[in-house]
Simulated scan of single mutants.
Amino acid sequence: MDLRVFTEPQQGATYDTLLRVAKTAEELGYDAFFRSDHYLHMGNVDGLPGPTDAWITLAGIARETSRIRLGTLMTAGTFRLPGVLAIQVAQVDQMSGGRVELGLGSGWYEEEHKAYGIPFPKEKFGRLEEQLAIVTGLWETPVGERFGYDGTFYQLQDSPALPKPAQSRVPVLIGGHGAKRTPALAAKYAAEFNIPFASVEDSERQFGRVRAAAEERGRKGDDLVYSNALVACVGRNDAEVERRARTIGREVDELKANGLAGSPAEVVEKLGRYAAVGSRRVYLQMLDLDDLDHLELIASEVMPHVA
């Protein structure tokens, strides 16, 4: 099982903080550094010093790292036109030497759209499907050929479909809890399906839906990587777990029920339960980005038992 670091910088983080976390994660052997794509904080925090843009952040980190993979959970489709997004991701992939992955979602947080003057359309899922078709279509168009698209929401004419990513195929991540449309979209476009903040039982059910949808499209169910995103709160003893939970404003019992919390042994055991239902990758939501010792503890006491 791969362990990846997943950050929520809209809650309050500078670029320098994110770079420090990414470089530490690379040094400690984590598989990837991912971040959310939000422009407004959530909950009872001030969000200072303010938001950082996901793809500008990843571009900078791409030039400061050498091994770790980089991506988003999830880029908000409402924030960017698909042609522009294809250019941005391809460029960052080139800057990283082919280490980028694109998680793309429909966008959901209406308040951040209001705060920064971003249109928040009523129909988002149909737009997401067209965005996926355009982004992947632009990348897959051979050099020298042209790409066009005539959709309900987006139209492209005579596009040179440039630039190309460094990778022959940038992995696309699709995720969510939807029972029908989401699995169908993942089956058509995704290299990886991610379910955020779900129980083992709900994960097993949703993975099964995606496998079935993939097989209906003529793909093998195991062509996709199946993954989870879960908040992490690990400690060497009960006091350390309690301290970390208190710092992020959560209760230990709730975190143990809904995330990965407790001693390293407890977390290894719970990760084993996710692995048993098909999860091959876990994005550890790290909410205290100043606590680099937390990263070190998981790397030394959890990672060797699940890798």
Rank of each mutant, 00 (worst) to 15 (best):
R4H: 13
R4D: 01
F6E: 05
P9K: 09
T14Q: 05
L19I: 15
K23D: 01
A25H: 07
G29S: 07
G29M: 02
G29V: 08
Y30E: 03
Y30P: 09
Y30N: 10
Y30A: 02
A32I: 07
D37Q: 10
D37V: 08
H41Q: 15
G43Q: 06
N44S: 15
G47L: 07
P49A: 00
P49S: 01
W55P: 00
A59V: 13
A62D: 04
A62L: 07
E64H: 13
R67H: 11
R69F: 05
G71N: 01
T72Q: 06
M74D: 06
M74L: 14
R80D: 04
V84Y: 11
L85Q: 08
L85K: 07
A86T: 14
I87K: 15
V89R: 14
V89N: 12
V92L: 03
Q94H: 11
S96T: 04
G98P: 04
V100F: 06
L104A: 14
G105W: 06
G107P: 03
W108I: 09
W108E: 02
Y109V: 00
E112M: 09
Y116C: 03
F125Q: 15
G126V: 03
R127L: 02
E129L: 13
V135M: 02
T141F: 03
P142H: 07
G148A: 08
G151F: 12
G151A: 01
Y154Q: 08
L156E: 05
D158K: 15
S159V: 10
L162E: 15
Q167S: 09
S168Y: 06
R169C: 02
V172D: 01
L173H: 14
I174Y: 10
A179R: 14
K180N: 05
K180E: 07
P183Y: 05
A184L: 11
A184I: 05
L185K: 14
R205S: 13
Q206Y: 03
G208S: 04
V210I: 03
R211P: 00
A213N: 07
A213K: 10
R217Y: 04
R219V: 00
L224E: 03
L224T: 15
V225K: 08
S227W: 06
N228I: 03
V234C: 05
D238Q: 06
A239F: 12
V241H: 05
E242M: 05
I248D: 01
D253N: 15
A257P: 08
N258R: 14
L260R: 10
A265G: 13
E266G: 00
V268Q: 02
L271V: 09
A275W: 09
V277N: 07
V282K: 12
Y283W: 11
D293I: 10
E296L: 02
I298Y: 03
A299K: 04
M303L: 10
